[in-house]
Design a protein around this nucleic acid. Sequence first.
DNA 1: ACTTTGTCTTGATATGCATCAACAGCTGGT
DNA 2: ACCAGCTGTTGATGCATATCAAGACAAAGT
Lengths: 232, 232
Amino acid sequence: MPLTIIDSAHNCRGCLLAEGLTNKQRQQLSMIIHAKRHYQRNEKIYHIADKIKSVYLVQQGSIKTEAITYDGRPVVTGFYFPGDLFGFDGIGDQGYLCDAVAIENTLVCEIPFQKLTALCTSVEGLQHQLFMLMGQRIGSHDHALIMMHNMSAESRLCRFLTIYHERMKKHTENQDAVVFLPMNKDDIARYLGLCPETLSRVLSRLVNKGVIRRHQRRLELLDIDTLYELAS
Amino acid sequence: MPLTIIDSAHNCRGCLLAEGLTNKQRQQLSMIIHAKRHYQRNEKIYHIADKIKSVYLVQQGSIKTEAITYDGRPVVTGFYFPGDLFGFDGIGDQGYLCDAVAIENTLVCEIPFQKLTALCTSVEGLQHQLFMLMGQRIGSHDHALIMMHNMSAESRLCRFLTIYHERMKKHTENQDAVVFLPMNKDDIARYLGLCPETLSRVLSRLVNKGVIRRHQRRLELLDIDTLYELAS
DNA sequence: ACTTTGTCTTGATATGCATCAACAGCTGGT
DNA sequence: ACCAGCTGTTGATGCATATCAAGACAAAGT
C-alpha cells in the first residue's frame, strides 16, 4: 500500500480543530504539535492504560480504537479517518481505555492535551472548536449505543455503510456511490457487535437483493434508498 | 415522594464542575447559573433537537436521558444523579440527541454552555475540570458500548448494579450494601438493551442464587463478590 | 370492600444470531 | 508454479433472548 507524503502538513489546514482559526492562530496550534509520524499497519499509537494524555489527528490513512471485553475479546469502539481527532478516551483520569491501532499506513500528529488546553485559554475559537468536537463525539456515541439496542444485523450494517458513505462524501472529492473499506471484515464485525460469519452472510444477502455490489473491499452502493430504508 | 430543599445550594459545593476551585471562583460559577428549578416526575428538562445549549447539574433526585430508535422505541442512554452533569449531547451542532426526563422530583440547575466556556478562559481550573468531565463521559460511553457487545443479560445487570452501587457509595454517606433504584424496571431494561421480561427473569435468578434480596425497589446486595464475578 | 390501573412476574413459543466446522479464494513466499 | 497461511464464505446446529400471552400483586380511586 503506497504512502503519499503531503508537505502542506504543518499548517494544520483541514484539521477539524483548526476550523475557523486565523492563519496566525493555526500557526500557534502547529507549534504545540508534539510529534507527527507514520505508523505501519497494525502499529499502535497508544495502549490501554497509557497516561500520555494527548489527542491525535489523522492526517492520512485510518485508525481503529479497540478495547478488551471482560471475557477477553477485542471490541472495536471506533474508526477514524483523515481530519478526525481521536484519543479523547484518555482525557479522563484513568488513562486510555482503548488501544489505538493503525489500520493501514497512516500519518498521525500528536497534540499534548495540556498544551492544547493552555492554548485554548488564549485562543477562544480553538476552545470552542475543541468543546464542539468532544460534544459531537459524545453525541455520536449515543448514536452507537442506540444502534446496539435491538437492531438487526442487517440494519446495523446498512447504517454503518450509510454513515461511512456520508463521512467519505464530506471529506473527499469522491462523490459517487462507491466506498472503499480500509479495515477488514473482522474489524467491522467487532465494531458492529456481530460475529464475522453473520456479517458475511448479511453482505451476501445485500448483494442478492441488488443493493450493493462487491469487489473485495470496494463496495458499490447500487440502491442507496433501499440502503437507508434497511438501516432504519 | 417527599422533597427536601437544600439552601446551601448556590455555593456550587458538591458540584463536580466546581471541584478544585477557590471560593471566589465558585462564586463566579454560581453567577452564570441561568436557572435552578424543580422538575416533577416525568417532566422533561430538555427535548430532542432543542438548541438551547446548556449543561445541567443534578442537585437532588435523578434524571434519565432517552432517545428514540429508528423503529420508534425509546432507549435510555444514561442515568444521572446528584453531582452529575448532563446535557453534553447538545454541545455538538445538531441540538440535543436525547430527551432529559426527571425520574422523580428533582432539583436541577442550568448553566448556559456559552457562558461556561467564556468563564473557562479566565478560570483555568474550571476549563480543566470541564474537559475532564467530558473526557470521562466519553470514556464511560466506551464502557457502555463494550457492555453491549456480547454480554449476557445477567452480566449486564450485575455490571449495572455494581457500577450503580459504587456510584452511590462515592456520593452518599450510605456505605452498606443496599441500593435504592429510583427508576422503574422498564427504564433499566431499556438502558441495558433488554426486554422487561428478561430483566425480571434475571432478577429472580439472582434472588434464587442468593446474590441479592428484593423489597420493591430496594435491593440488598447479599453477595457482592459473586455480583462482581457475574458482571465480568 | 371492590374495581381499576399500572407494574411486575412467569410460562410457552419463535427467531436471530453465535458457534462449530468445512471449504473456497487470495496472497505471499520459497 | 506450488504450497502455506490468512481471510472470507457457506452450511448445520444450539442457545439466549424477544415476543406473545396470561396471570399475580400492589397502589389508587370510588
